[in-house]
């Protein structure tokens, strides 16, 4: 299976890659046209992953970014009134705005953006997540009758949920070894951004990419989830396992019941979402 490579915006590195789909990480959103020019020569831009250190309202969105897939992490939403003039362009873009749960008012801001037609994603990165607030947001995302833009990871899970097999929503954050591989400037390959940062590589160079599935390190890492079944109180025994897949196993024990409840609710919501999709009749077309 062809993996999508997540790599920094370095021309030298990109020139060594050929015929791949790339997620390009950069800090400066104003360089994305340059990214498109460079990547699309010999590869295909899957998405520009921008980790902006500023608020959403500080960005001057351009009409000619319309066809560029953008995943934008911002430090906060900024003032609503400053956002309003940007909405007409923002709505035209192929963009998803990611907000961390560490930011004040994130849940409300995500609802607000979504209700105005902007796709959003919640980054669940707090050690003490407010699972009740996340659950509320999930209810809005899935059960909300009013038309609003998708909110991730809820929309991804609800769309891809299958009660007979696991659903890994890591793809929403480019963190799914089955789909994404992370590459650093030196060409080292890891299965996640975290592992890339801690230098837990599965390959030392891009040349090993085609054979990576046979690498023992890769196989060991990809099967690491089995460990959860060995532990007597592991996440694998939780009802929410099929969707959570142990992503929050490092959280304090006090959180465990709360995240379990959330994921159980999410699975129920996903079944509801899919039953609603099936209700939609596809009429014949002329």
């Amino acid at each position: 299976m062809k993996r999508i490579l997540v790599c920094p915006f370095k021309e030298e590195l990109i020139s060594q890659i050929n015929g791949k789909a790339l997620v390009i990480c950069l800090d400066d959103i104003y360089k994305i046209e340059q990214v498109v020019d460079i990547v699309n020569n010999h590869n295909k831009l899957h998405c520009a992953l921008i980790n902006a250190k500023y608020s959403l309202t500080a960005i001057s969105f351009q009409n000619n970014w319309r066809d560029i897939p953008i995943a934008l992490y911002v430090s906060d939403m900024g003032s609503f009134l400053e956002l309003v003039p940007k909405l007409p362009v923002l709505r035209q873009l192929d963009i998803r705005i990611y907000l961390s749960e560490n930011i004040e008012h994130t849940y409300t801001n995500i609802m607000l953006l979504s209700s105005l037609g902007i796709c959003t994603g919640l980054v669940i990165d707090r050690i003490n997540s407010d699972w009740e607030a996340i659950n509320d947001l999930m209810h809005y995302a899935i059960y909300g009758k009013s038309s609003h833009a998708p909110i991730e990871p809820f929309h991804y899970i609800a769309s891809n949920y299958n009660k007979n097999k696991p659903t890994d929503f890591g793809s929403v954050y480019f963190e799914n070894p089955g789909k994404y591989l992370h590459v650093n400037e030196a060409g080292n390959v890891a299965l996640s951004d975290k592992e890339l940062q801690s230098e837990s590589f599965v390959a030392d160079s891009l040349n090993q990419l085609d054979n990576i599935e046979n690498s023992p390190v890769y196989i060991e890492r990809i099967n690491a989830w089995r460990e959860y079944f060995i532990k007597s109180d592991g996440c694998a025994y939780c009802q929410g396992w099929r969707v959570c897949l142990g992503k929050f196993s490092d959280r304090p024990d006090s959180q465990k019941k709360e995240c379990e409840k959330f994921f159980v609710d999410l699975m129920e919501a996903s079944e509801y979402f899919q039953s609603r999709q099936q209700e939609k009749k596809n009429l014949w077309q002329l």
Binding site: H105, T108, M111
Partner: peptide, 15 residues
């Protein structure tokens, strides 16, 4: 009135 409640009411009225 909070933002969250305003959004809820707006959705209800729109629906």
């Amino acid at each position: 009135l909070s933002w969250k409640n305003l959004i809820y009411i707006a959705d209800l009225i729109e629906n």
